[in-house]
């Protein structure tokens, strides 16, 4: 596990040594605050709207995982830097775990920051008591957990795509379809929350979890050394 952490740390530093990545991350943190500010005049915003904004604050940062995952795997294939990594005494499972962690940790961190920023901004605008009632601790934890599951889904599926394509650009293009799927899922969750259809919410969360499991198993199989080297 130590080597997986070492690998993840290097990848995260690499991702954020690019100014564009930092700007994108800041946009995701600023977006929920902007939503609150835009709706400042509508002091009578419905509780459901606050919940949807909170959902967006928690889940939108998950989109940063697409770029990170596509860059992490396909770019490494493209630059041939996978060969020295595969030649090092590190287990296949540590490579996959380290790379997933490098996708998951920053996006999840961003999701947490974004959620906290939204909570603070909305408390200031809509009133702390009201926001505390709509976004209780259980709801906030639930939203954060949902974002982690979604990031895992994105990371694992983009890993699967990256294993099959030769370039980062292709991986990003195909990953765009993952993003489209994510938007559909978000809309479904948003709609379900608004209509208080708990069964639909549970159904969507269950679908995400199943997707996580399938994608992780596929990624594990595709990213063993034999497969990875054969496709270089």
């Amino acid at each position: 596990m130590r080597k997986a952490l070492l690998l993840a740390r290097r990848e995260i530093v690499e991702q954020y040594s690019d100014r564009g990545a930092i700007v994108r991350a800041l946009i995701f943190v600023a977006l929920p605050i902007a939503l609150v500010q835009i709706n400042r005049g509508t002091g009578r915003a419905q509780d459901g709207i606050i919940l949807i904004f909170a959902l967006q604050a928690a889940l939108l940062p998950a989109a940063t995982a697409i770029n990170a995952a596509a860059g992490s795997f396909a770019a490494e294939k493209e630059a041939q830097t996978l060969v020295p990594l595969l030649a090092a005494p590190i287990r296949d499972i540590d490579i996959v775990a380290g790379k997933l962690l490098a996708v998951l940790a920053p996006a999840a961190g961003l999701s947490l920051v974004s959620l906290v920023a939204f909570d603070a901004a909305s408390s200031a605008v809509y009133g702390a008591d009201r926001v505390a009632r709509v976004l209780g601790p259980a709801t906030l934890y639930g939203l954060f957990a949902l974002s982690v599951f979604l990031i895992l889904t994105i990371g694992a599926w983009v890993m699967v795509v990256s294993a099959r394509v030769g370039s980062q650009r292709t991986a990003q293009q195909i990953a765009g379809f993952v993003l489209a799927g994510m938007i559909v899922a978000l809309s479904a969750i948003g709609g379900a929350i608004q209509n208080l259809a708990a069964v639909v919410v549970v159904g969507v969360v269950a679908a995400i979890l199943i997707s996580d499991l399938v994608a992780l198993e596929l990624a594990r199989r595709l990213w063993n050394r034999e497969e990875a080297v054969a496709r270089l």
Partner: peptide, 14 residues
């Protein structure tokens, strides 16, 4: 083993 290939294959931002 130490392996050197035709391409240096470095993490160039490091």
């Amino acid at each position: 083993c130490g392996l050197v290939t035709d391409s240096p294959a470095l993490y160039e931002r490091m």
